[in-house]
Structures are given as C-alpha cells and as structure tokens.
Measured scan of single mutants.
Amino acid sequence: HNLTITQGKLFFHYNPKLCLSEIHKMEEVSGTKGRQERNDIALKTNGDQASCENELLKFSYIRTSFDKILLRWEPYWPPDFRDLLGFMLFYKEAPYQNVTEFDGQDACGSNSWTVVDIDPPLRSNDPKSQNHPGWLMRGLKPWTQYAIFVKTLVTFSDERRTYGAKSDIIYVQTDATNPSVPLDPISVSNSSSQIILKWKPPSDPNGNITHYLVFWERQAEDSELFELDYCLKGLKLPSRTWSPPFESEDSQKHNQSEYEDSAGECCSCPKTDSQILKELEESSFRKTFEDYLHNVVFVPRKTSSGTGAEDPRPSRKRRSLGDVGNVTVAVPTVAAFPNTSSTSVPTSPEEHRPFEKVVNKESLVISGLRHFTGYRIELQACNQDTPEERCSVAAYVSARTMPEAKADDIVGPVTHEIFENNVVHLMWQEPKEPNGLIVLYEVSYRRYGDEELHLCVSRKHFALERGCRLRGLSPGNYSVRIRATSLAGNGSWTEPTYFYVTDYLDVPSNIA
C-alpha cells in the first residue's frame, strides 16, 4: 500500500525493539523526510534493546553428524571492536523451508527459537588472519532439518551509529543413524509349514526405512522333555500350542467401542483428552525405555581390526524358502538304536541362519518350516543398504507352526516275539517326523474274553527296548493296539495285532 503524509511529521519514542533503520525507511515511504526535528525521533529510546544489523554474515563451514552440527561463519568486528559482546545463534526444527525470524513471537518477546549466546573469538592483530567464530550444536535429532541463523550482539553506541551483522536463515539436516526397533511384532501360524509375521514401523526411523531383515531359527525343545518319565503317576503330560491366527481386521481397528449394538453396526467412541494424553505418555515412556535398553543392555560386537582377528559373527547367506525346513542338525536320541526319531534339535552355532529381506511392506510369510516346531524370529529395521547396512537392534518374537495331521501315527506293522515265561516283546517304529517329539506310547492289549488293559511306555523305555515287553501273560489269544502321544496330543491307534500265548508248562520236552 502507498502511504503519503502531505502535512505533519513523524514522532517515535520509547520503541526499544524498533531499529532506527526501520524508522528511516518509514520517513522515505511516507514522504516526511526532512520535516522531523532532532528530538522527534529519539536516538536513545528507539532500538536500544534490539540488534540492528546492516551487514550480512556468511557461514564459512558446515559439518553434520547424526546428532551434531558444527558451524563456522566469517569474522565480524565493528569499528570499535570492544562493542562486540558476542553472537546469538538461533535454531529450531523446520520440516519445511518457510521459516521466518519472527515465527511464534508474542507480545512478551518470546519466540519459538532456541538461542545460544556465543563469546567472540580472540581478536588477531592481523586483519587478514582473524579467527572464524563458530559453535557445535549438540543433542539434535537424527535425520531432522533445522533452520539456523546467527547475528551479532553489540553494545549501545553513544554516537548512535547503527552497526551489526546478521546471516540469512539456512537449512541444515542432520545425518541418518540406526533406527529404533520395529514396533509390535506379531507372529502367527496359518499352516503346519508357515508363519505369518506382521509389525509396525519404528517410532524413530532416523532416516528413510529402506528394508527390513527377518531372521528365523528353529528352537530346540526343553531338555526336561527328553529326561522326564511322563508315565509316572502324578506327572502331567506336557503340551505345546501353536500360535493362533490373526483376529479379523475389524476387531483390530483402534479407537473402536468394545460393545456392539445388537441391531447392527455401531460407531466408534472418540477417545477423551485424558485417554489420548495417557497414550502419549505411555508411548514416550516406551521410547525412553527402549533407548535405555539399547544403550545399557546391548553391547556392540567388536569388529575385526587390522591384526587379522576374525569377526566372530557368522556370515549372512541367503537361502531359498524351500530350504528352511531342514535348518537344524538332527541327532538321534540314543545312538545305539537307529530307529528312534531325530527330534532332539541342538543347533550348531556355526550354522548360517536363513533370512529374508523385506522391502516396502511390514509383513512376511515364512514358508518351508517344520510342522509343530518353535521358531525364534528376529526382526531388524534398516535405513541404508549400501555401502553397508545400517540397521536397528533386533526385536524378537516366537511362534510355533501348526501340527501336521497323521504325523504322530505309527507307520509300519507292530511285530512281536514270544519268549519263555510268557513274555512277549512288542516292537514298532517311532514316527519319523512327529509333531514336536514323542513323549510316550500307549499300549492297549486284551486277552479274548477279558477286559482291555493299558500300559504306558516312556520315551526312554522305548529307546532301550525298541518297544516294550509284556510279562506274566496268561495263555490265550491276544490283540494289541499302540498309539503315540506327542507334544500336540495323541496320534491314531494302530491296526490290531494278534498273537497267541501258550502255557509254557505244557511245552513238550526233548528229553527222552
């Protein structure tokens, strides 16, 4: 807008934040220059609390790290170098490059900038070799853009010569660093050979998330399962459950009422301010606690030095998902009996873990797994792929695949051998790939016309006998059925096997 004052003059007093240069501009645009008398524009009460600059400061050096910015700028000295009290560095987070010096300023003089007072450097006698002032900004957020400017702080001049310097606002972004852990990993099994893994992005990506790394490792069953005799009275049979499938998407929606109208769909109840505040506090606490764990609990591995020492970490090797089922080394339970199943799973520490690289999504279907087997899954978020990966501390989750139908069934015939004193040795093959492992066998036998009897055969007993022995049988026709019990439950009964026990007292003698 054009402003013209045809008559009258300007009068400025007691404006401590208004620089004289701005008042002189007002004289020019209003056409009143030359009308004012000496005392109409006070030299001592206008701009006496402001830094009124008329020179431009330029930054000469900028260096960044993930949490620091090192700045240096060209030296500046007023005509009387004693008038320079120091520099004021202003900075704040700036997602967009549209910041002005006066953003967030209120009537009390406060604003949204963080201000650092910096002492002037030592003055050199040689004007050509003056030290460049600077400042190291610490405690910054990774991968965050900051708006920065600097200006001088000078003393009051009796001659009211307006001098000083100020830089333009520059924008500097800190470097990326390792992201925080992925949030809320959930693993479920939808079949006997697959596990579905879902997660949420890290709360602090500290860069642009480029991919996720998912490692999985087959877990050995508890050692007590191999040692305890679950045929003993009072000892509860062990059981394991597989990871249940995901709930429906509708039930997972946030901010939804727990109660549904019987007449149909209901609208979600909005969260109160107290609920939102509580969630923010919980989120802040979780982030602080995660940072504490990362800094205190997890110790970084030592990389190899120039002395030739090897990095103890196993090298990563990509495998196809079809090879995942046989990740671990199978060892027989008892070496003397080769027909026992290889369900003991000690994992070799030198073995390469299978892994998958996930790009542009937060889910993965891990296939080719062994049925009813526990897996430990390790999830890392990465925001750099080359020249070397920059990934987060791992988040861990466990899951067990679903049982395989008929995996616990005894394959092959049940054979028998009759000894003296009416002892019958029953023999059968253990299931080759049971659900988890076989903890015991149930032997059901009966003599024709009598009630059915049951015998429990422990895992250890089966390994020693290759089956079991029935003792003290009365003469007669017998039928026997056997079924295995694994961590997933009972298998199917075998087809009945028949044998006849004679009275050993009636056996004919070869003595003449």
Rank of each mutant, 00 (worst) to 15 (best):
C468F: 06
Y504C: 04
T502Y: 02
S486V: 01
D261L: 09
Y292P: 07
T502C: 08
D385Q: 11
Y292H: 04
H416V: 12
A335S: 08
T328F: 13
V329K: 05
N422G: 05
F372N: 07
K302Q: 11
F337A: 03
T347M: 15
N477S: 05
I410T: 03
E282P: 12
W493R: 03
A394C: 10
E389N: 12
V329H: 06
S486A: 08
E356I: 12
L426F: 03
D222A: 13
P354G: 12
S223W: 11
E420F: 12
T485N: 10
S486I: 00
L232E: 07
D273F: 14
E351F: 06
K278R: 09
G472K: 14
V359Y: 11
W242C: 02
E260Y: 07
L235H: 11
L228W: 13
D291L: 10
D273A: 14
Y504E: 15
L369E: 01
N477R: 08
T485I: 13
G374E: 15
E356L: 09
Q384V: 08
Y500T: 09
F285V: 05
D229P: 09
R313H: 01
S342V: 15
D450T: 09
I377M: 09
Y441H: 02
S223D: 12
P245R: 13
F298K: 02
S268D: 08
E249Y: 05
A399Q: 11
E265H: 10
T272I: 06
S344N: 06
R446P: 00
F246V: 06
V324E: 03
V457N: 02
G436W: 02
Q275G: 11
C267S: 10
S398F: 03
T340M: 14
P475N: 08
Q384H: 07
D385N: 07
I377Y: 08
C382F: 00
E282F: 13
C391S: 01
V501W: 02
L440P: 00
V397L: 14
F462G: 02
P238A: 07
R447T: 07
A399M: 13
S315T: 14
E279C: 01
H454A: 04
V327Y: 08
V423A: 13
S257Y: 10
R353M: 08
E310K: 01
G476R: 00
G374R: 05
C382L: 00
E451Q: 15
E420R: 14
T333G: 14
D204R: 00
C266I: 14
V480H: 00
V443G: 00
N295A: 10
E227K: 08
L487S: 14
I276G: 09
S203T: 10
Y441G: 00
V397A: 13
P475H: 09
N490K: 04
F499M: 06
E279A: 06
G472N: 09
S248I: 12
L293A: 14
L235G: 07
V214S: 03
A399C: 10
V439L: 10
E249Q: 15
R318D: 13
S239Y: 13
A336P: 11
F462M: 12
L505Y: 15
A336G: 05
P431M: 02
F355W: 12
N422S: 14
N206M: 06
K253S: 10
W216S: 03
R353I: 15
W216N: 12
G476T: 00
P245D: 13
E442C: 12
R447S: 08
